[in-house]
Amino acid sequence: MTSCHIAEEHIQKVAIFGGTHGNELTGVFLVKHWLENGAEIQRTGLEVKPFITNPRAVKKCTRYIDCDLNRIFDLENLGKKMSEDLPYEVRRAQEINHLFGPKDSEDSYDIIFDLHNTTSNMGCTLILEDSRNNFLIQMFHYIKTSLAPLPCYVYLIEHPSLKYATTRSIAKYPVGIEVGPQPQGVLRADILDQMRKMIKHALDFIHHFNEGKEFPPCAIEVYKIIEKVDYPRDENGEIAAIIHPNLQDQDWKPLHPGDPMFLTLDGKTIPLGGDCTVYPVFVNEAAYYEKKEAFAKTTKLTLNAKSIRCCLH
């Protein structure tokens, strides 16, 4: 018999989150649709729960009410004593943790798909938090293969000092899905179709896995975050240069030392320094102006996964 890495157990509980950011409308629209008619997301033997994560922000069509829901799922915020004085999103995070967690427990949901849009030209993107997770690498390989020839990129946010504390991190297997470009507060049919297909293929993978299909060893190309880059700023902290036209919409493309990065209003080009080629992502993302992030630098690498098969009882 072929030796293989056996994944822990079959997958039982899956959640699909929309509206973690209330103005990213593809996930909101799909989740609302699936709450009314969820036939397309159901798979035999699998509990799939669509869920609106930040209903107040969705109602106002804004990213958040008090603070970013997708950055506060750490033990400090989840452990705060519940009171009306807490920011709305912290209270909501505790409610979500109660419903789908608790985080880092045996009772937490197996998989959470968190649906997002970006204003950046990132196409279909899967966000991975753990480079050693054979199950998710296999799932992402399946999704990428199923979507081809449509490109699907994998963004690895594993980093020693950049801690995200994402909404989906309460699950055993957290999956971020990011599709763009799409303006905030807008629905685009092409973007919706791409996100819908990503979810379909992900659920198909889980179904095949649960039925005992063995997935042979595989490898995927990923883009691992190195650092986030702020806009150049003046002495008052105001933005002093904008994304250069040569960099705009060039997510995932190589940016070499000396290539144009920013452009000042008086026409001066600010190039990339250093001696390493990087791959920019979230270029000129609207939501990241407040976070002082013009783009993120990534490096390209390959992740390998062992063969996996479900432990059938």
Results as ranks from 00 to 15, higher is better:
286 A>M: 13
56 R>L: 13
196 R>L: 02
125 T>Y: 04
83 S>L: 11
36 E>C: 06
222 V>P: 02
104 D>V: 08
181 P>F: 01
114 D>L: 04
106 E>Q: 08
130 D>V: 02
25 L>P: 07
155 Y>M: 08
278 V>Q: 04
120 S>R: 03
114 D>M: 04
112 I>Q: 02
11 I>C: 09
238 E>M: 12
206 I>M: 04
278 V>L: 05
238 E>W: 05
151 P>K: 15
85 D>F: 13
308 I>H: 03
96 I>T: 08
222 V>H: 01
212 G>M: 05
79 G>V: 06
303 L>T: 03
268 K>L: 10
175 V>C: 05
79 G>E: 12
105 S>W: 12
138 Q>S: 04
282 F>E: 10
147 L>R: 00
118 T>V: 15
270 I>E: 05
307 S>N: 07
49 K>Y: 14
296 A>G: 07
212 G>W: 01
120 S>T: 09
83 S>W: 07
91 R>L: 09
153 Y>H: 14
96 I>N: 07
187 L>W: 00
150 L>F: 08
132 R>I: 05
276 C>K: 14
218 C>Q: 04
103 K>R: 08
293 E>F: 15
36 E>K: 11
92 R>H: 07
69 L>M: 13
271 P>R: 15
145 T>L: 14
157 I>K: 11
65 I>A: 13
275 D>K: 13
82 M>N: 14
145 T>V: 13
140 F>N: 00
179 V>C: 07
268 K>A: 06
236 N>C: 15
82 M>K: 15
45 G>R: 07
153 Y>I: 04
59 K>D: 15
230 D>L: 06
287 A>T: 11
276 C>N: 14
27 G>C: 03
187 L>M: 10
273 G>Y: 09
16 I>E: 02
148 A>F: 08
274 G>L: 03
2 T>G: 12
248 Q>Y: 01
81 K>T: 15
138 Q>T: 01
169 S>V: 05
167 T>G: 12
81 K>A: 09
300 K>E: 03
147 L>A: 05
91 R>E: 13
37 N>W: 06
227 E>N: 11
55 P>L: 10
310 C>S: 14
28 V>W: 12
76 E>T: 08
50 P>I: 03
51 F>Q: 05
173 Y>P: 03
127 I>R: 13
96 I>A: 06
208 H>N: 07
225 I>K: 07
